[in-house]
């Protein structure tokens, strides 16, 4: 299961203003990928282009041999059934209760009875911890709850390709930890292909198999997690370690003056922090896409930063938090 998504030479502009150009990457089937990038670089636009909501100027998106930008509307609706998408602000139907929102795709696309629908919806709502809020309208719950309801709705048809636009923004640290565990466990169980846009550096460091970084109108780098975490490429290094020193400034790109001043002052880049272990599934059994820690580094002759892949290694305290399999994140998450 799981479907590969191959993007080739994709370019998108609005009114002549390019958002990004010539983006090529492959989301390997059944793996979790994370897309990073400064605010406003077009990550949400990228997700919308992937599902065919926006037409790219050039390039192709290949899914199961179909080229999405060249499909008819009709065929596009068929392909979209493979997708589960969480929009940046949930995009719940404002006139329906949370329950009806989650039940909506089932009622539209399946011939399930109300009793069967109830079972599925309850399971998904339990998974995201929203039992008890079924009868509320989207306007009556918090932003984080809307996000989680959107998550439940995106998962209800058991999609093959799951796109999440900042699932963790607006969530508290505990919920974020549960969510990350949920993503890992879902991937283990369904072997769907994940693409997650996030600003949470801890999520980016510990959850995915692959990381991509969009910066300054192009894809700066896309590859296995260990490749990016051990990269010394200035942009990647600055972004993945949340530093001020580097080519990215407040207004996206620092100008030459600022960079020169930075070099002058002799600001020393701190050493790369150790690469943390990837988050394991809560039942301890490996995911199919999982690779042994350090494998990529060994195969490519890269020496990981000292202290990498040690139990408990991590840049922030949260990287260490959901520790052993079956720990608090496993039991309380109700991820099954």
């Amino acid at each position: 299961m799981g479907v590969e998504v191959a993007v080739r030479g994709l370019t998108k502009s609005f009114n002549g203003q390019p958002v990004w150009s010539d983006v090529s990457l492959t989301l390997p089937a059944g793996e979790i990928s994370v897309l990073l990038g400064p605010s406003g670089t077009g990550k949400s636009v990228f997700l919308k282009t992937l599902v065919g909501l926006l037409r790219p100027d050039r390039g192709s998106i290949l899914i199961e041999g179909l080229d999405l930008p060249r499909l008819s509307e009709r065929a596009l609706y068929e392909v979209r059934k493979l997708f589960g998408v969480l929009f940046q602000d949930g995009a719940l139907f404002g006139s329906m209760t949370i329950y009806d929102n989650v039940a909506f795709p089932l009622r539209e696309h399946t011939r399930k009875t109300e009793a069967e629908i109830r079972a599925v919806v309850t399971e998904k709502l339990d998974m995201v911890g929203l039992i008890g809020a079924e009868r509320k309208l989207p306007g009556e719950i918090s932003g984080g709850m809307r996000k989680r309801a959107g998550l439940a709705r995106a998962l209800v048809l058991d999609p093959q390709i799951i796109l999440f636009d900042e699932p963790d923004s607006g969530l508290d640290p505990v919920r974020t930890a549960y969510l990350n565990q949920l993503i890992i466990d879902l991937n283990q169980r369904t072997e769907a292909t994940f693409l997650i846009v996030t600003h949470d550096i801890n999520t980016a460091r510990t959850v995915p198999d692959n990381i991509g970084l969009i910066y300054h109108g192009h894809l700066a780098m896309f590859g296995p997690r260990e490749m990016l975490l051990s990269s010394t490429e200035p942009v990647v290094r600055q972004f993945l370690n949340a530093q001020r020193i580097g080519p990215i400034g407040m207004a996206e790109e620092k100008d030459a003056e600022e960079l020169a001043a930075e070099a002058q002052s002799g600001a020393e880049l701190p050493p790369l922090p150790p690469i943390p272990l990837q988050l394991p599934p809560s039942d301890g059994r490996p995911r199919r896409a999982e690779r042994p820690p350090g494998q990529w580094c060994r195969e490519h002759g890269v020496t990981p930063p000292p202290g990498s892949f040690a139990d408990g290694a991590g840049a922030s305290p949260r990287a260490r938090e959901p520790e052993p399999a079956g720990g608090p994140a496993g039991t309380g998450g109700g991820a099954r």
């Binding site: 929009f87 719940l92 539209e108 048809l157």
Partner: peptide
């Protein structure tokens, strides 16, 4: 509110 986008993505 992106509801229409969401609807299209849900295949409707």
């Amino acid at each position: 509110r992106e509801e229409l986008d969401a609807m299209q993505v849900l295949g409707i």
